[in-house]
Amino acid sequence: MLAQSGLTDLLRNQTKQLHAQWMAELAAGLRADSRIGATELSEQTGEFLRILSEAAREGVWDGPQSPQLRPVLSFLDEVSRSRAIRGFTPEETATFVFSLKRPVFDHLRRRFEADPKTLADALWTATELIDSLGIHTFKAYQRTREEVINRQRTEMLELSTPVVKLWEGILALPMIGTVDSARAQTVMESLLERIIETGSTIAIIDITGVPTVDTLVAQHLLKTVAAIRLMGAECIISGIRPQIAQTIVQLGITLEGVTTRATLADALALALRRSGQTIAGTRPS
């Protein structure tokens, strides 16, 4: 097919010119950029064209799904990945591929000037190829962003659950912010692990910083209390604000068998008493 051979020929035999034109196109589109140097960009585009022409050499391709395009796609995966991590926008990342259109179109127009029908076919083949590569780039970019978001979510979960040792044998977990299932689970696990590590017999969960307590949150608290008891320690829930106490009762949630206190200080006093410890003032009264 003449149209396709036009594209193949361009990729195989005029790689150098194409590269230069592409670089010019990219340079026009992007301002001076500290995230990627001109040398690195030139290497990237050069490598991309090399892999693409290699794929073209394999013979006739049957559309964008063709297996010979696989190395091209995995190279684009890498490019999108590194750009997503460096903070490029999705448009900037997709431009990497789409900016190849003008140099390719220019070339095809010159070559098939006398033959409008073949020119149309060639343009269509090129468009189809470049668009599919562009979309692939975009998808890969999005995947990397999702990975980054997931990782940050996990890190945030770990950050937001600091289990602190208040006293010998007494742990406290000050919970702040909205509690969802994933967070409640992380909280429960890290508290239980710390109980074992420190040999603590009393754990205080302080919910002063939790804006609302609904049935789900209450259920997680009850499960945590039950698990702590099974391990042989005791759990006190503190920081129950007046409106939260009202909500709990109105929702019909029973925190039966759970020791609760209004403030963390009250909970600590109770914990000290239960573990047979006292704090004495230094000044004689």
């Binding site: 499960k223 008891r229 099974l230 042989g232």
Partner: peptide
């Protein structure tokens, strides 16, 4: 009953055995 591991305690509670 002594020495129940955290993972076992979480599982038992989920199973409905307190």
């Amino acid at each position: 009953l002594v020495g129940m591991r955290p993972a076992v305690a979480i599982t038992l509670v989920e199973l409905g055995l307190s």
